[in-house]
Structure formats: C-alpha cells, structure tokens
Design a binder for these strands. Structure first.
Lengths: 344, 344
DNA sequence: AAACAGCCCGAAAAGGTTTTCGGAGTCAAC
DNA sequence: GTTGACTCCGAAAACCTTTTCGGGCTGTTT
C-alpha cells in the first residue's frame, strides 16, 4: 500500500477571527461584536464582517471561547456498562436533550471498575466539563462520586448512595403494581411471579409492588416469588416447577422479557394456550424479544429515554443555579400486546 | 422540596498553574517545565513544585493546553443509529482503544438524518476534535462527509462511497463462506439459506460467499436464497415453505440470529431434531438470543469491537502522519454451539 | 467658537498553559 | 581579573475569543 503520490491533500487551515477581521478591514473586537450581534456596530460594517466570515467559512473556536467563559458547553456521560442494553436508551435520551441545545457529550465507559471510573472523572474534569451524568448498570444504589466535585452531578437509573445528591430512577415498585393491576383487570386471579436474580434491587422492588397490588385486591401470590436468573432458561425451568405444583395458575408476570420468552415456550409445550389459559407478561419491553413472540408479549417499558432526558434537564437546571437533590422516580409504562389479551 | 438551608456547598475553584507556581515560589514557566519533566530544572525545585501541585490537587486545564498545541486529544464518534445493536460494540471498541491513551470521545447520534449529521460535524469541528470516526448502521456504502475536512476521518462498518477515504468493515462475503464451510465440514450437503432484507448489502454479500463456498464443494443451494426481513417471524414463515418443498434439507444458514430463532422454532415444531436432522446457523452472535436457545445457536460473530478498535488505531495512524485509504475488511469469527454439532 | 452628546471602532486584557530566549548566577581556567 | 562554560530560572509570546474602556469622529447646541 504505497503512499499516494498525489500526496495528502493540504488540509485547509481553519480560519480565525483575526483572518475575518483582516478581510473585512476591521479590528478583531469589532468582528467579534458584529458576529455576536452586539450593539454599536454599524449595519454596513456588520455586513462586511458577515461576508468575510462566510467567505472564509469561519466558525469560532469553542475551546478559546470556553477558556474565557468558564463554560465549555460539554458534559460527561459516565456509564458503567455500555453493552448492557439499559445504558443505551438513557444515553440516547440524554444526548437528545443536550443535542437540541449546544451541548456536546463526552462518553466514557468505566466497565464497572472503580479505578477506571476515577480516572475518567479526572480526565473529564480536566476537560472542564460543565457537569456529569452517571448512568448505572443496575438499579441498586451505587457509591457516590463524592460531593466535593467542582461541577454538578446527576445519577441516572442507579441512584447515588448519598441521598443529598440528585438521582433519576425508574419506579420499579409501582411498575410491579401496574403489571398486576393489568392482569387483574383482565380477570386473572391465580397469578405467579417468576423473576430474576434476587441480588438485584430491581427484582425485589418489583416483587414488592406485586405483593402490594395483590393484597389491595384481596388476592395473594400463587407460590412464592420465583427468583433465579434473568435468562430464558430460568423461565422455562421455573414454569415447569410452578405449573406442576399449581396447575390452576392463570397468569405469570415475569421479571424480564427474556424470562418471559422461556416461560411462554414452556407454557405452550404443556398445552396451555396464551393468553386464553395463561396470560404472560414480561418486563423491559425489549422490542426484538417482545414484538416478535407468539403471541406478541405484553411488557413494561421503563421509559429509559425519558430517564436520560430528565437527567439532562436536571443537569441544565443545576447549571442554571437551581440544583435539586434526592431521588426522583419516573413512572413506567404498560405496553399491552397479545400475551395478556386476545387481539382480534 | 424546599431548598436545603445548608445551601449549595461552595464548589472548590480548581487550582491553576499560577497557584502552584506561587505556592512553590517559582515562576509559571518553571512550574510547567518541572511538571512536564522538561530539562534544566533543579531536582530540589522540581520536588517543591510537585509538592505544591499535590497539595492543591492541581491538574492542567486541557482546554488551554489544546488551544496552544492545536491538538485537543478528542475525537468525534458519529453514529447514525445508536439504538441499533451494531453501533454499540464498535463504539465500545473505539472508546476502549482511545481510553487507553489520553483521548476522549465526543458521542453524536445523527439518527440517520443528513441535516443532523452536518450539524454535528460542524459542532465537532468547532470543538477542534483531532479526528472523526463515522459509524454506519448498515454495511451499505454511505455518502462521504467530504474530503476537504480539516481532520482525518475513518469510516467504520459502513464504508464511505469515496474509495479514496479509509473504511474499516466486516468481510461479509467471507463470513458467508465460513459458515457454509463449517456446515459442510459437519457433513451437511443439502443446505438452504434464509436471509433478511435483500435491500441490505450485508444480505447480498453473505449470499455471495454462500454460493461461492457451495460451488467450491461441488454443491448448490437448496432452493433460492430466501430473502425477507430480519425477524423471527420471517424465519418461521420461510422455514415452513422451504421444508414443504425440500424435505431433505439438512442445514439452514440464517441471515441473523433472530431469523435463526424463528427457524429453530419452526424446525422443531415439524418434528425434526436440531442438530441431528437439521443444523441451524445464525449470524451476529447476539448472546442473549444465541446462548440461551435450545440448543444453543452456532453463529458468526462480526468482531465489531475489533472493528471499533481498528478504526481508532487507523485514526491514530492518520494523526501521526501515516494516513491510509481504501476499504479494509476484517474477518468474522465462527462461534460454534449446539445447533450444528452435538455437544456431548 | 466652544462645548457637548452620540455613535463607531480599536487597543488591551483576560482566560491557562507551553515554549523560546535571554539573563543571572556559580565555578573553573587562563 | 577576565573570559568562558554551564546550570537554572523568569519574562514574554503564543493560541483564539470576548469584553471593557477609551478615543476619534460627526453633528448639534450655547
């Protein structure tokens, strides 16, 4: 692969304000004022400056501007687990909310490693980010970055363990309640709950909502909460055990869509129809799994994009001098498909 | 939620080099030289400066440094489709390769919108990024950003339509070949191919490799390539048609793991055993789908993280004055599981 | 004619760092 | 005592933009 003899095309040096000023025949001060719409610039002069800027395709150096203003218009987005599918929508929501303004986002993945995280935080602070959003991989509280940072911080999805800081999370307890209320509304009374790893706060929180909703309706869970892993295989296994012991089950609420897919397979193999005999509900509303299931899977959507947007807005508010604190939880949303109600 | 009466804790002003110099009793010039390991600084002086820096927990302002050096140590990562699952691993690989150095990554999602993309590119250039990585959502060539940008650009996953630019992509043709060679190696001869949307270059490229490998082995495809959509539903539907017409099929290579899941369901429902009667192969090696299938699904992994890393390295090379050009394709990798060979 | 108001524009400083260049100081040699 | 070599340090410029402040100019009023 020889070097191209045409050579590297000379990269155009980007024009500076000085160049514009020279071309327009004014001082840099005037050029700056003209371009930024400041007062006391003659319309004719302003036009000349704009023409010059256009001609040189000038755009201001954000670094220099940030150095002077003390604000850079950048924020750091610190994730602990990028490949996990929860971070992404949050990240999209945040990027979206910022992108609408003039803010750009530094992305850092700490890989759930504290050392790496500290390293990244330091790097971000050196770059003088205006604020930080910390996205967790689980809903369990996570260690705070510390309260003495020079910029505001918002925690998303996973709350900080310091209650004086601001955290935006999903309301998993109410989500469990919503799911059960939906099942009850469709006439189910013998309801079981197959969840994931009990070590996850998300699993325990949802179970709490489940029990509360059942109690309110004068019902109780069929069997205990089946904790296991967040996998299809667990869903299949747990369903077998559960249906053997409680053949009269008419609804199963699952801790994730993966679990639900396993549950559906197992239910169908035992000759029960979904949703006529047994209703099945998932959690996460993971489109590829839920939409293409047979029948399509009713699920709970955590509105993660909204969590990201809310975190971004909260950071804006803090930057504007109205910091909030405490844990703010956002509601989840039911997505009803064919696995709980016959769609005809 | 009343404002806390403790008030916002005064954010510590970050120390500057001037502060360090003053505390150490030297000039800023000396302080800079001492901290950066330059020559001609007395060891004792250097120690004093380091002590002062430590005491003030000084870290240099990267903005100021970048303004001066002309290099900011930042790159822009432009994705067109963040929620699609292909961008993420690439992004992780790139972030990883950069993170090892001192480079930070600006993330921008253009949402497959040209206007938005131009906007983001401009914003990134204003921030004086040192380079750009453009990650596509499909393997089809995409419009170039233009060759007259002031910084080097590397395209990843989706190549640029300008062959003079550098693109790092996956070798989908060879991937199709690899898949078929594996099936043949396990003794299959009646092989079908159920793929996704024919509008995707990925689907057509893989089919090309499939045909080439079969031809080399003196075989030919059973039925035509079944193009459809990248969904489970299509996998189920296509399998039905195919098995009706060609009952002697002993292997099905699928265009994606989703399609493969549908295919597996359908094959099993027709009473055929996997892999004894029919081998099934997927594509993408999407863990959640492949690892938890019954049996676990043999698939092709596009090594997307490696694509990201390679793109990052290529950008480094370009920054160091050794730009490359043309399309460089990286090999895919077979991940063999239970759907093609009995694991006992 | 002098003073004054009002409008534009330019010089300069600021922001934090790095680098260049010259100067101050020490010591040895002639 | 003067020169020279050498070591260490500081002043200043550079990067690019924004903002403040003062000055020049025109036209009007006393």
């Amino acid at each position: 692969m020889a070097k191209r003899d045409s050579g590297t095309p000379a990269r155009p040096r980007t024009a500076t304000l000085t160049d514009v000023a020279r071309l327009a025949g004014v001082s840099v001060a005037t050029a700056s004022k003209a371009l930024n719409g400041r007062d006391h610039v003659h319309p004719e002069t302003r036009r000349r400056v704009f023409d010059a800027a256009e001609q040189l395709s000038f755009t201001p150096n954000t670094l220099a501007r940030g150095l002077l203003a003390g604000r850079t218009g950048t924020v750091g987005l610190l994730t602990s687990d990028l490949e996990g599918r929860f971070s992404i929508p949050i990240l999209m929501g945040a990027e979206d909310a910022f992108g609408a303004g003039q803010v750009n986002v530094f992305l850092c993945d700490a890989r759930d490693d504290t050392i790496r995280e500290r390293h990244h935080v330091q790097a971000l602070l050196n770059r003088r980010v205006d604020g930080l959003i910390v996205v967790g991989s689980r809903t369990d509280p996570r260690p705070s970055l510390g309260r003495n940072l020079p910029v505001p911080v918002v925690y998303a999805y996973a709350p900080s363990d310091d209650p004086e800081e601001l955290s935006i999370i999903c309301d998993n307890v109410t989500a469990g309640r919503q799911a059960i209320e939906h099942l009850i509304a469709t006439g189910r009374t013998r309801i079981a709950h197959i969840s994931g790893d009990v070590a996850y706060a998300a699993a325990r929180d949802r179970a709490e909502g489940v029990r509360a909703a059942l109690a309110d309706a004068g019902l109780s869970l069929v069997g205990d909460v089946q904790y296991g892993s967040w996998s299809e295989g667990w869903g299949r296994a747990a369903t077998g055990l559960l249906l053997d012991r409680h053949p009269d089950i008419d609804a199963i609420f699952c801790g994730s869509d993966q679990v639900a897919r396993g549950v559906m397979d197992s239910v169908r193999e035992r000759g029960r129809r979904i949703p006529e005999d047994v209703a099945v509900m998932g959690f996460d509303n993971w489109e590829v799994l839920a939409a293409d299931a047979r029948p399509s899977l009713t699920s709970v959507d955590m509105n993660l994009e909204e969590v990201g947007r809310a975190a971004a807005r909260a950071l804006f508010a803090a930057l504007d001098g109205s910091p909030r604190s405490g844990v703010e939880s956002l509601p989840c949303r039911l997505v009803i498909r064919g696995s709980t109600v016959s769609l005809s």
